[in-house]
Amino acid sequence: DVEPGKFYKGVVTRIEKYGAFINLNEQVRGLLRPRDMISLRAENLNVGDEIIVQAIDVRPEKREIDFKYIP
């Protein structure tokens, strides 16, 4: 289970104008929005990159997770 405030290692699987999709594993995926990329620009991300993200909002009923990148 993903808990708000905890840090996780994930892999960038898709990049859109509104953010990057980060997979923690095959069943868990969330969104890293540009406003939550402190000191990281979306254009510096590539599909396949491994990054550490913090879960900031977890909505299990919608199967949605928002992440924040903190260097």
Rank of each mutant, 00 (worst) to 15 (best):
D1R: 14
D1P: 12
D1H: 14
D1G: 13
D1E: 12
D1L: 14
V2P: 05
V2G: 02
V2A: 04
V2M: 05
E3G: 04
E3F: 12
E3K: 14
E3C: 12
E3T: 13
P4A: 12
G5W: 06
G5I: 03
G5M: 06
G5T: 03
G5D: 03
K6C: 13
Y8F: 03
Y8L: 01
Y8V: 01
K9V: 11
K9D: 01
G10W: 15
G10D: 01
G10V: 10
G10Y: 03
G10K: 01
V11W: 12
V11K: 10
V11I: 14
V12Y: 00
V12R: 00
V12E: 00
V12N: 00
V12F: 01
V12S: 00
R14S: 11
R14D: 02
R14I: 05
I15Q: 01
I15H: 01
E16R: 08
E16P: 01
E16A: 13
K17S: 12
K17D: 09
K17E: 11
Y18Q: 07
Y18S: 05
Y18V: 08
Y18T: 05
Y18W: 15
Y18E: 09
G19Q: 07
G19V: 08
G19T: 08
G19I: 10
A20P: 01
A20E: 01
A20D: 01
F21H: 05
F21C: 08
F21A: 01
F21V: 12
I22M: 01
I22E: 01
N23L: 11
N23T: 13
N23H: 12
N23E: 13
L24A: 01
L24W: 02
N25H: 07
N25T: 11
N25F: 09
E26C: 12
Q27R: 14
Q27E: 12
Q27I: 12
Q27F: 15
V28D: 05
V28C: 09
V28M: 08
R29E: 08
R29Y: 11
R29A: 10
R29F: 11
R29L: 09
R29H: 09
R29T: 12
G30W: 05
G30A: 06
G30H: 02
G30R: 03
L31Y: 04
L31H: 02
L31G: 01
L32A: 02
L32W: 05
L32M: 06
R33N: 04
R33T: 04
P34Y: 15
P34D: 10
P34C: 15
R35P: 05
R35Q: 11
R35H: 09
D36H: 12
D36Q: 07
D36M: 08
D36P: 02
D36F: 10
D36I: 09
M37L: 08
M37W: 07
M37A: 06
M37R: 03
I38C: 14
I38G: 15
I38D: 11
I38V: 12
S39G: 15
S39Y: 14
S39K: 13
S39E: 12
L40W: 08
L40H: 06
L40R: 05
R41M: 11
R41K: 14
R41C: 12
R41I: 10
A42F: 15
A42D: 06
A42W: 15
E43I: 12
E43N: 12
E43V: 12
E43L: 13
L45T: 01
L45E: 00
L45F: 06
L45S: 00
N46F: 11
N46M: 13
V47M: 04
V47Y: 02
V47D: 01
V47N: 01
G48D: 02
D49Y: 06
E50W: 15
E50H: 14
E50S: 13
I51H: 00
I51W: 01
I51T: 00
I52R: 05
V53A: 01
V53D: 00
V53P: 00
Q54A: 05
Q54N: 03
A55H: 02
A55Q: 02
A55W: 06
A55L: 08
A55T: 05
I56L: 12
I56T: 08
I56A: 06
D57G: 14
D57C: 13
D57T: 13
D57P: 03
V58C: 09
V58F: 07
V58N: 04
V58D: 02
V58Y: 09
R59A: 04
P60Y: 09
E61C: 09
E61P: 05
E61V: 07
E61Q: 10
E61A: 11
E61T: 09
E61N: 11
E61W: 08
K62P: 05
K62H: 08
R63F: 11
R63V: 06
R63C: 13
R63Q: 13
E64S: 07
E64L: 14
E64C: 12
E64A: 06
I65L: 06
I65A: 04
I65E: 03
I65Q: 03
I65W: 09
D66F: 15
D66E: 09
D66C: 12
D66Y: 15
D66G: 07
K68W: 06
Y69F: 11
Y69V: 06
Y69I: 05
I70Y: 12
I70N: 09
P71V: 09
P71C: 15
